[in-house]
Design a protein around this nucleic acid. Structure first.
Length: 526
RNA sequence: GUGGCCGUAGCUCAGUUGGUUAGAGCACCUGGUUGUGGUCCAGGGGGUCGCGGGUUCAAAUCCCGUCGGUCACCCCA
């Protein structure tokens, strides 16, 4: 050892980092594979950006808040860099604290040549120079999923929103989490904004009010004090709390008030007056539409509207949601950010997305006994990954009445069918190979896509599927009238061809049917 | 940046009115036994009690400082 050199055994890892020995590395792979599989099956494509960016990229959007928690860097190759650090306190580069600015930059750079929508996901390490605590470290993994460039119609937005919610829910389900473990709480920023404006919030005070609402559940008593500082009157506090925290789960928040405001005549009147506000009525209609689409995707019961979810960030413009679990920080969070890409210098592009860190979800899995160990862990990470090539492209044959059916089938294909054997066993070992075992009625989850084109022209829809290199197409005419087409072989398949049934002429969208499209596709694709 | 709790063997931890060579379980090593594999028996290695200073005849134990960890606040991308 060189004189004066420090023994490496004395050098501790930097605060908030983790060493991953083989067991931890495998657990990391388990989670990363779950992320990738869920995204891929839902038709998202993997991208990657650099792990450090110019500091300016983060300064544009984030402002003061984030800059204080950036790990900054300079190359050491140019003396003026050091000069800059000394003069401005800001290095030319920063290690990424989040992905969204990179996403916006990447999208803007090639916006003209990119298809719409772009459904992208990415996973990797992120860094924030904050004080570590439960569920929060300085280096962590994060999964980002974004739906960029929906068509901007009410229905297009709702579908994009629900696809994003749907990936998050797929992942929870894949990991074996249930509605008893987590809830996907969603709301609409525009509704919240309209309500607060109705009470008297302005452009200047709005962000502070959102931050205030965001802080209430953590410490209701302190929030009451803070309300005074914000200059809110007693009545305003009651209205806000009554409106945003009217769900059962918020008993603790309501308890911080001397009486529950929701039943009072003043509050009822306030609620009625809200319905007269066009923005409120609009956003409620949009939420209702989303709820319908959630049902079409078969996700009913997972999503719960929860007005108090507003998220602290300034840039959200519509749907906002969080995956919540008892006793933990938010497992994931996200929302719609229709102005952000434009703000970062790109073309005006609506977008919605979310992020999930590995720290909280890992704690949750460990607590619930849902993290495999030993041989099971090894087997779990050795399983076949989701097919990157789209397996089934689902299109509607006729008018829009089939749209709901198309979405339902697509969602069902992505979900797969759990086997009888798995369910009989109690279903708490989601990594088990028997989960979708065909021998006892299971169907494996598949990579299924739909077209986002507005055309009803079947020829164009099928061309879209072929352009995306889908292996099969499912053409939905009705519940029990589905055609299956093999793009590679350029021919139609029948239940008889693939040995599913001699008596049926067409396939079915019903997962319990012997001629279920998923069963057929699995037969063809293996 | 602020505050609470913690820091004794590789791991999980005992060990306070301060008092002789600092302990247990697990793990590890050696030998034996069981007609070679998660059995049993015997033995063994291993600790600057986070680090530095102070009080004391005497400090793992009390005081101050410091470093590290953890939890909460702040903040949430």
């Amino acid at each position: 050892m060189a004189p004066g050199a420090k023994s490496i055994s004395k050098i501790t890892p930097p605060k908030g980092t983790r060493d991953m020995y083989p067991e931890e590395a495998l657990k990391r792979r388990y989670l990363e594979q779950a992320w990738r599989d869920a995204s891929v099956r839902c038709g998202f494509e993997e991208i990657h950006g650099p792990t450090f960016e110019t500091t300016d990229l983060y300064a544009v959007k984030s402002g003061e808040g984030i800059l204080g928690e950036l790990f900054q860097a300079y190359s050491g190759k140019a003396p003026e860099e050091l000069e800059q650090v000394r003069a401005t306190g800001r290095a030319p580069y920063a290690v990424r604290p989040e992905f969204t600015p990179t996403l916006a930059r990447m999208f803007a750079a090639k916006a003209g040549g990119l298809p719409r929508p772009c459904k992208w996901f990415t996973g990797g390490s992120y860094f924030r120079a904050e004080r570590p605590q439960r569920g929060r470290l300085r280096e962590f993994l994060q999964w980002n999923v974004d739906f960029v460039g929906d068509d901007g119609t009410s229905m297009g937005r709702a579908v994009a929103d629900v696809e994003i919610l749907g990936v998050a829910i797929s992942l929870l389900r894949d990991l074996g989490l249930t509605r008893a473990d987590t809830v996907v709480a969603y709301s609409d920023r525009r509704m919240a904004e309209a309500v607060l404006r109705h009470i008297g919030a302005t452009d200047e005070t709005l962000p502070a009010w959102f931050a205030w609402i965001d802080s209430i559940p953590k410490n209701p008593a302190a929030a009451m004090v803070k309300a005074r500082e914000l200059g809110l009157s007693d009545l305003e506090v009651r209205f806000v709390i009554g409106y945003f925290f009217n769900q059962k789960a918020d008993a603790r928040v309501l308890a911080a008030l001397d009486e529950n405001p929701t039943g009072t005549p003043a509050f009822v009147k306030f609620q009625q007056s809200l319905m007269m506000v066009p923005e409120v009525a609009d956003s409620i209609a949009q939420l209702r539409r989303s709820a319908d689409v959630i049902e079409q995707f078969g996700l009913g019961g997972w999503g719960v509207q929860h007005n108090a979810v507003v998220r602290g960030l300034a840039y959200y413009t519509g749907l906002v949601f969080e995956v919540l679990a008892d006793g933990e920080r938010a497992v994931a969070g996200g929302g719609r950010y229709d102005r952000l890409i434009e703000l970062m210098g790109g073309p005006p592009t609506p977008a919605v997305g979310f992020a999930m860190g590995d720290v909280v979800v890992s704690l949750l899995l460990e607590d619930k006994g849902l993290m495999p160990q030993g041989a099971e862990l090894m087997e779990a990470v050795s399983r076949r990954p989701a097919s990157v090539r789209p397996e089934v492209f689902v299109v509607g044959a006729d008018d829009e009445s089939s749209d709901a059916l198309v979405r339902r089938l697509c969602a069902d294909l992505r979900r797969g069918v759990e086997s009888g054997a798995y369910k009989d066993a109690g279903g708490r070992k989601p990594w088990s190979a028997a989960r979708h075992d065909a021998a006892s009625g299971g169907v494996r989850p598949m990579h299924a896509r739909v077209s986002y084109k507005s055309t009803r022209n079947l020829k164009k829809l099928l061309a879209d599927g072929e352009k995306q290199f889908s292996r099969l197409a499912a053409i939905v005419h009705g519940e029990d009238r589905v055609q299956l087409k093999d793009f590679d072989a350029r021919r139609d398949l029948t239940p008889k061809d693939i040995g599913l049934s001699d008596t049926h002429a067409e396939f079915s969208v019903d997962p319990s049917s012997v001629v279920y499209v998923g069963r057929a596709a699995e037969r063809v694709l293996g």
